[in-house]
Amino acid sequence: MPSRDKIFARIRHNLGRGPLDEAAAGALKARIEGHAPHTIPTRTDISRDKQIDLFQEKAEALAATVARVPSLAEVPEAVRDYLAAHNLPTRIKMSPDTALDGLPFDKTPMLEVSRGAASPEDEVSLTPAFTGIAETGTLCMASGPETPSTLNFLPENHVVVIRKSQITGTLEDSWAQLRAKFGAGNLPRTVNFISGPSRTGDIEQTLIMGAHGPRRLHILIVDDEK
């Protein structure tokens, strides 16, 4: 008997039944398609402004840094200032995402921007986020031709641009937005939830930043809710 059959036979035998009948299977299918949430923490039942503040506060507690930027047009200068303040390289690999197309990098000639997936020699990446989750200060990143996920991991420094309107309360809000964009039951190849920069506690339980992923995570919140 093939292993698949063996495993299913054992499961059903030990549960004391055969395959589920049509009614029972239908109920489980409806349960999946209904994807009802469980109890959702109430900490994000607050005003929009407070949600944004909570997102920032939580992200900073995770050792990310956050800056507020009045508009997309000011993103290049914000990136330049961040890199200068930390004495970081000025060569940037940016996602080929249309959302970042209009950024006026002509204002910051010292920044050398190229676009594409990450290569091992890239030291700074600049990417958009799919959503932000105020509950835990988490970024949600959805992969795609315009948003290669290697940019989230390979460079040592990761700068993320997120619009205020993309920041919502809970994890469940991100599922709703992913379903709206990709269709129910579908996800892009990679969905990353990122909560702060990379770290490890594997040497004598001492917290060290920058284990394999980015050592620094900088989040630019662009105000589009004025």
């Binding site: 996800l187 892009p188 190849r189 909560s195 992923g213």
Partner: peptide, 13 residues
């Protein structure tokens, strides 16, 4: 931690 740093969902190739 409230969330681990990286939670990743991988779907297909």
């Amino acid at each position: 931690q409230e969330m681990s740093v990286y939670t990743t969902f991988s779907t297909g190739p």
